[in-house]
Simulated scan of single mutants.
Amino acid sequence: MSDPDPTLPAHLRLRARGTASNAVGRFERQTRERFEDGWDIPEDERLLRTEVREEVPRSALSFNRSPDLPFDRSVNPYRGCEHGCVYCFARPSHAFLGLSPGLDFETRLIARPGIAEVLAKELRAKSYKPGVIALGTNTDPYQPIEARYGLMRQILQVLSDFHHPVAVTTKGTLIERDIDLLAEMAARGQAGVGISLTTLDPDLARRMEPRCPPPARRLDMIRRLSEAGIPVRLMMSPLVPGLSDHEAEAILEAAYKAGARRATCIPLRLPREVSGLFQDWLAHHYPDRAAHVMNRVREMHGGRDYDPEFGRRMGGQGLWADLLKARIKLALTRLGYDRSPIPLSLEGFRPPPRPGDQLSFF
Results as ranks from 00 to 15, higher is better:
122 E>M: 14
234 L>N: 02
178 D>K: 04
86 V>P: 12
107 T>W: 03
179 I>T: 07
106 E>K: 05
206 R>F: 07
260 A>I: 03
56 V>I: 15
351 P>Y: 03
37 D>P: 04
108 R>A: 11
294 M>W: 12
63 F>S: 06
205 A>L: 05
41 I>C: 06
186 A>V: 04
110 I>S: 06
32 R>A: 15
260 A>G: 06
329 K>E: 10
167 A>E: 11
79 R>I: 08
294 M>L: 12
37 D>H: 07
229 G>S: 08
99 L>K: 09
116 A>Y: 02
176 E>C: 12
214 P>I: 05
77 P>F: 12
156 L>D: 03
171 K>R: 11
36 E>A: 14
268 L>F: 08
144 P>H: 02
145 I>K: 04
235 M>I: 14
133 I>F: 05
118 V>S: 00
162 F>R: 06
181 L>S: 10
221 M>V: 15
197 L>V: 09
211 R>P: 12
164 H>M: 14
278 F>G: 00
61 L>H: 00
57 P>Q: 08
45 E>I: 09
268 L>Q: 04
122 E>T: 12
2 S>E: 04
111 A>E: 09
195 I>A: 01
254 A>Y: 08
180 D>L: 14
16 A>W: 03
256 Y>E: 03
334 R>L: 01
154 Q>S: 15
55 E>D: 12
325 K>S: 10
73 R>F: 13
278 F>A: 02
71 F>Q: 03
163 H>D: 15
128 Y>P: 08
217 R>Q: 13
221 M>F: 14
33 E>N: 06
29 R>V: 13
161 D>A: 13
135 L>I: 15
143 Q>R: 01
27 F>R: 07
115 I>T: 02
215 P>A: 01
204 L>G: 02
58 R>Y: 13
69 L>D: 11
261 R>W: 04
130 P>C: 12
286 Y>Q: 12
82 E>I: 05
243 L>F: 13
225 L>A: 13
238 P>N: 07
206 R>P: 15
119 L>E: 01
10 A>L: 09
40 D>M: 14
132 V>A: 09
67 P>T: 00
76 N>M: 12
180 D>H: 10
229 G>D: 10
274 V>K: 02
28 E>Q: 07
271 P>Y: 04
125 A>I: 11
70 P>N: 08
65 R>W: 14
56 V>G: 10
298 R>N: 07
194 G>K: 05
98 G>D: 01
271 P>Q: 00
232 V>W: 01
40 D>Q: 11
12 L>D: 02
3 D>S: 12
271 P>A: 03
308 P>F: 02
3 D>H: 08
281 W>S: 08
68 D>W: 05
60 A>D: 03
267 P>Q: 04
224 R>W: 08
241 P>I: 01
334 R>Y: 00
216 A>P: 05
14 L>P: 00
44 D>F: 08
286 Y>A: 01
109 L>C: 11
60 A>V: 07
197 L>N: 00
304 R>M: 15
218 R>M: 10
344 L>W: 05
259 G>W: 00
211 R>Y: 02
347 E>I: 01
286 Y>I: 04
171 K>Y: 07
188 R>C: 10
262 R>C: 09
114 G>N: 06
177 R>Q: 12
74 S>L: 14
362 F>E: 11
232 V>S: 06
26 R>A: 13
277 L>W: 00
29 R>D: 08
342 I>E: 03
